[in-house]
Design a protein around this nucleic acid. Sequence first.
DNA 1: TATGAATGAGCGTTCATTCAT
DNA 2: CATGAATGAACGCTCATTCAT
Lengths: 192, 192, 192, 192
Amino acid sequence: MSKKEAIVQSAIRIFTEKGVEKTTISDIVKHAGIAQGTFYLYFPSKLSLMPAIAEVMVKTTLQTVIDTVKPKSAFQDRLRQFVDAIFEVNREYHEIQAMIYSGLASTEHLKEWETVYAPIYEWISGQIAHAQKDGLIRNDSPPDALAKLIIGLTESAAEQIYLYDEIGQDSRAAKQKEETLKFLLMGLGVPS
Amino acid sequence: MSKKEAIVQSAIRIFTEKGVEKTTISDIVKHAGIAQGTFYLYFPSKLSLMPAIAEVMVKTTLQTVIDTVKPKSAFQDRLRQFVDAIFEVNREYHEIQAMIYSGLASTEHLKEWETVYAPIYEWISGQIAHAQKDGLIRNDSPPDALAKLIIGLTESAAEQIYLYDEIGQDSRAAKQKEETLKFLLMGLGVPS
Amino acid sequence: MSKKEAIVQSAIRIFTEKGVEKTTISDIVKHAGIAQGTFYLYFPSKLSLMPAIAEVMVKTTLQTVIDTVKPKSAFQDRLRQFVDAIFEVNREYHEIQAMIYSGLASTEHLKEWETVYAPIYEWISGQIAHAQKDGLIRNDSPPDALAKLIIGLTESAAEQIYLYDEIGQDSRAAKQKEETLKFLLMGLGVPS
Amino acid sequence: MSKKEAIVQSAIRIFTEKGVEKTTISDIVKHAGIAQGTFYLYFPSKLSLMPAIAEVMVKTTLQTVIDTVKPKSAFQDRLRQFVDAIFEVNREYHEIQAMIYSGLASTEHLKEWETVYAPIYEWISGQIAHAQKDGLIRNDSPPDALAKLIIGLTESAAEQIYLYDEIGQDSRAAKQKEETLKFLLMGLGVPS
DNA sequence: TATGAATGAGCGTTCATTCAT
DNA sequence: CATGAATGAACGCTCATTCAT
């Protein structure tokens, strides 16, 4: 693993453990096993880490979604699998998800965000477009608009559950997933 | 206005202007016209401001919703008015909304948040319960679950627009609102 | 008890508990049950408390000595009783003893200290003068000089034991007392 | 001189000049010619300086004693030289001596103090042991116990003189030394 | 006398950033 | 490429002191 990758991996790890604000560059380089100065060979500042982290997280999310959703399932099953995947990623990385989602990572790298996020929007958008063509859903809004609504709804539902670290909430999570799926199915106009 | 209120008001103002992370306590007290030490008579730290701010923001949000939604309108009109209200509040306070919504305001005051948020969830929940009883919507999920989905979907849609300060996005906002409303109507099962 | 006395008593108590440097005026007034401003009606600053405290401590010390030393005992018994008394006061108030003894209470009230300390020096000095006149001790140095050496030796011996809060040191203390007494007896030239 | 040594040397200098409590870290770093942050690379707080300072002071004291005491002198001459040495060190560093001796330098580093002080106790103890073996003194208490009494008596006598910065006290000091020496000689049982 | 909310200078401390090696 | 000791501006916070009531 290159030093650059080590930095990003360590940052994700420590952000997850102790929160973004309380993490110092010193923490990151210690965990990565490199020198203080080395950080600046790759990133000009702490904030400039964010796009790289987002990229990794988006890849992780997309990979989890792709791994979870079986292409040959019925559309509503795929939707259920998608919800499962998003909840799962949120459970594991809720601190970072919140950080990325809320855009708190400063206003300076916004341009990059759009491109970083593109893959996951595109994947969903593609699925929706196919489903519309195949007549599987009645909602005829543009696929990319629907993609944003779907991801927004699902992630906010997941956050409402996992923002609070308390344990034994599996049943709450299961119910929340059911309600979310139902709302998605109806919102998209999937015949039941 | 008491000193405590002055602090909260000033904090909201400055967080809105320059972001939460970049705001110092010094900024807040200067704007509030009080001494540095006075801050600590009312709040032990910057983070402990958050529940008080959230409370004000929730009040503002609920008030805006109540002022915007005409009780005698048809349900789908009220839903449109609700979406308008949420977008409006987000437009004005997107930085703070993001902060509150994402829960990034530290994990130490989470218990308080539930109670702080209660009023707005309850209002929506009440509207939904009525609509279900009157047969205006087909989605028979519990009202409080639907309330959370509705606010989550609408706020995330608004954030996607307003997180980026750029101007001249009114048309994008208008479209986003339309898509959101449509999704909500279908998701709730409002006959069209 | 007057407010002034309450302040002094509270200060002694809290200095003993948490150390002089870490004690704030706020701590003192809270414990005394009076208002912040009231403190300044009686003492212009924290440092000006010191002579009043010293006075109380000197009184306490002298009283303990007088209560412990039986006037009709043989001289060496009285010396042993004196050592016991000094060790006892040190055990209970070692933090304050150290503070007073080392004169760390600032250089601004030094003049007052001499007068504050006078009673205890005088008492010892009187005892020594009598003993010299009665031929009980051979050391013919001036009584007031001997008084200072005696108190200096005994208190430093006690401090060496009680500065360290550890428990179960009674046997160490007993030995230290024996050696101290022996040294005093020889130093004063008490026939054995 | 390393930065760490520079910090310790500067601290000793400034503590001597303006007292411990009134000395700020800012004073120290300015005098040492280093940056504010550099201090914290070596010491986590102002209090943690104390053991390092004590170590230097103990070295200085022991060195002064060794330089002053002529090994071939008669025992009572060596005792006189010892008293001279202790008074001299106290005259020059009374503020720091008081601080170290009274142990006010916080209760957190007490363990270290015992080891820091060891060299000077050992030196005296060694001298006493020899003198006892050679029959030069009659007091047969354990050498280490006597060592502590001797240093305690002599330093407290010195402090009583030098705690007060006033000038023209040479005659008082000379008298105090004489009385102290006499007391020591008798206390140890040195034949006269 | 007595109060206690308010003050603000100044403290200890942090940490992103630099640069000689 | 890599280092890590050094920097110093800037921060949160404390607390002795004041004063209108």
